[in-house]
Design a protein around this nucleic acid. Structure first.
Lengths: 215, 215
DNA sequence: TAACGATGTAACTAGTTAGTGCGTTAACCG
DNA sequence: CGGTTAACGCACTAACTAGTTACATCGTTA
């Protein structure tokens, strides 16, 4: 007696299967970290077979590396689409702060994946050859932004674009990644929509006051 | 033939054994996260037996909870020792920023433990009864600091002490927890002593510009 | 000193987990 | 249509891992 007559076999499609695996792996790795994730669970979530994971990605770690690289490439691509160089410096800076916050908020897996990778001291990213040039453009973009602002007399000079980038990321990232312990420690729900808006406002103040000349 | 004649049996000391276990567990959990850590490894590191871990702490998760609670109690106690209420507002604020940075730098396990706990959505901290009042005092201390600064005309009014606290933590914490991926992404060694000093300076600027009235 | 609880050890168990061997089937091409 | 290749799936294994059982020994006190 045949077993799976109700579900007719899926048409064979290597690319689609790989995508399903990557999507499932991203979810699983983001939820449980690298060592907390189970390859069997990823296979099931992907509606695929564990054998396929090893066929396409070689190992659990290589799968993690691919997921991580994809995540970095995605945020870097999204940043490039902002086209900050076409805007007035102050507007561009505000847009970058808002974008960074919103991206983290809408892509919580990104934060968790990066945390996992740092727990492993960037072991996988070190091996990667796919993310080299991507960040360079972001730093250049911010450096250019700062230059233009200084020349037009709205920003103060001497600000390091890398430090600024890190700070813009930090004030959003930290709030969101530590929202669970933070909500307990501060006895307030940091994930509440109003709390989120207040945080974004506060972050905008922080960056504007840091960079701008006139208050 | 007896095996362990070279190492005479350790005198029995429950408290000392628990301390050794806690110390080893902190190291192991900080290095590998909760699911990446192995109870056998902790027992070995502690120069104790696995049976003792279960005898004193019940389970791997309860051991983690104890380690985490101890870590929070330690930083909160250190903050209280700062005695910020005895200093001029500006000096006190600068001292708090410096302290927070230095504490994270010298206690990297704290950051990793908190990250692990947030991966688990604060599951263990939720159960804890030992860390309730500790944070309240920190927030009160900062709130008082802000009030005094506003009254003496050096700080601008309306700053939320919780948001400020979070920001002070964020700009240090993020830099250090993401130093591994950051060093690759930005193609510079973020852990370099000079880089660390530059970051502290930048963070001081960020907070002072955020809080103070006159630049 | 006998008894008893606290401290310690080693060996074991039941369940889990990353990774594989091998057979099957669909798609494509001559 | 025959045959080759790539996609897929089952069932297995070797190693690992949290937690336990059974037992030994120390130290204190009745």
């Amino acid at each position: 007696m045949p077993k799976n007559q109700d579900t007719s076999p899926r048409p064979r499609d290597a690319e689609a299967t790989q995508k399903r695996i990557l999507k499932a792996a991203k979810k699983e790795f983001a939820k449980n970290g690298l060592s907390g994730s189970r390859v069997d669970e990823i296979a099931e979530r992907a509606d695929a077979n564990k054998r396929m994971i090893y066929h396409y990605f070689g190992s659990k770690e290589q799968l993690f590396q691919t997921v991580l690289e994809d995540a970095y490439l995605d945020i870097r691509a999204a940043e490039q689409k902002l086209a900050l160089d076409e805007m007035a410096p102050k507007d561009a800076l505000e847009k970058l702060v808002r974008f960074t916050w919103t991206y983290y908020l809408k892509n919580p897996e990104f934060i968790t994946l990066v945390n996992s990778e740092n727990l492993h001291r960037a072991k996988h990213l070190k091996k990667s050859t796919r993310i080299d040039s991507a960040t360079r453009r972001l730093v250049d973009m911010v450096a250019d932004l700062l230059d233009r602002g200084v020349k037009s007399g709205v920003f103060r000079p001497g600000i390091d674009p890398v430090q600024l980038n890190i700070t813009i990321a930090a004030i959003g990232y930290y709030y969101l990644t530590n929202q669970y312990t933070g909500s307990i420690i501060y006895k307030t729900n940091l994930a509440d929509p109003q709390a989120l808006n207040e945080r974004l406002d506060f972050n905008l103040q922080t960056i504007m006051r840091l960079v701008c000349l006139a208050p």
